[in-house]
């Protein structure tokens, strides 16, 4: 194994650049280093002006997502040696506006997320519970997969529908809505339906499936969306066929 590798990193300085450019850095190639270690090496030893986001270094915080050689990746979980001899292209997540260098603005997602009410909703009439709402392991299994989402935005970055139409609610927001819809303690699925089952919600999805392919937590947002399409379609059918009282 060669002991050095080149990172070709996207730079964008809004105060002086009109277009992003690529800058090359030559860094040590160590077998235990992930891409994020390489970026930290650049920041600490080569070029302190490079901007990027990171925090936990262990695939939990979801802030170090970038495009590595064209693929959306968590840079803390992507080893440099996989890409030897390089060079490795490091770009900011696609489908989001670039703020600076490798930092993107995910404000669009942050504004969409509360619209699907990703929290436990209980009936208004109900009196506050005196004890916790109990749940069986089998009931927890129903939504557990969707609760693994760390909002890293790799799915939005991989989604061509979101790339073409920024109004699309997007994979993670819908998967997180399903996380609560499928929770036995939740009573809010009817409240979420209007937003989810709209033209900019599940119906815009064409099941490309890339969101699930790039997800580092195996959330399977594509599966969540297709399953919800079935739920929403059955609900619409019931509304059409059954008299009001029998629903």
């Amino acid at each position: 194994m060669a002991d050095r590798i080149t990172l070709r990193v996207t730079r964008y300085r809004p105060e002086s650049d009109t277009e992003p450019t690529a800058q090359e850095y030559d860094i040590p190639l160590r077998k235990e280093w992930v891409v994020l270690d390489g970026l930290n090496h650049i920041k600490d030893h080569l070029d302190g002006t490079l901007s990027y986001r990171w925090s936990c270094r262990m695939g939990v915080c979801g802030s170090c997502g970038m495009i590595v050689n064209g693929e959306p990746k968590l840079t803390c979980a992507t080893f440099l040696k996989e890409y030897a001899p390089g060079p490795i292209r490091i770009e900011p997540l696609s489908n989001f506006p670039i703020v600076r260098d490798l930092v993107v603005d995910i404000g669009d997602f942050m504004r969409k997320l509360p619209r699907v009410k990703p929290w436990l909703i209980r009936s208004e009439q109900e009196r506050p519970a005196k004890e916790e709402h109990l749940q069986l392991p089998a009931e927890r299994e129903e939504y557990e997969q969707f609760s693994m989402c760390i909002n890293c935005m790799l799915c939005y970055s991989a989604c061509p529908v979101y790339a073409l139409d920024q109004d699309f609610l997007g994979p993670a927001a819908i998967a997180l809505a399903q996380r609560y819809n499928l929770d036995s303690r939740d009573q809010g699925s009817a409240e979420r339906m209007d937003v989810l089952s709209s033209a900019d919600g599940i119906w815009a999805c064409t099941f490309v499936g890339e969101c699930s392919a790039v997800c580092p937590k195996d959330v399977d947002p594509a599966g969540a969306i297709q399953r919800y399409k079935f739920t929403a379609a059955m609900d619409a059918l019931k509304t059409l066929l059954l008299p009001r009282g029998a629903r």
Binding site: Y12, P14, E15, E19, P20, G70, S94, P97, I98, V99, D105, G107, D108, P160, A163, L164, Q166, V208, G209, E210, A213
Partner: peptide
């Protein structure tokens, strides 16, 4: 109003033949 705090951001256009860029697309 997409990015109120960053008036100068960069957003590349999606090319018409975007689906030629990735095998899965």
């Amino acid at each position: 109003e997409y990015t109120p705090f960053h008036p100068r951001w960069h957003r590349p256009r999606v090319p018409v033949f975007w689906w030629l860029r990735r095998r899965s697309y």
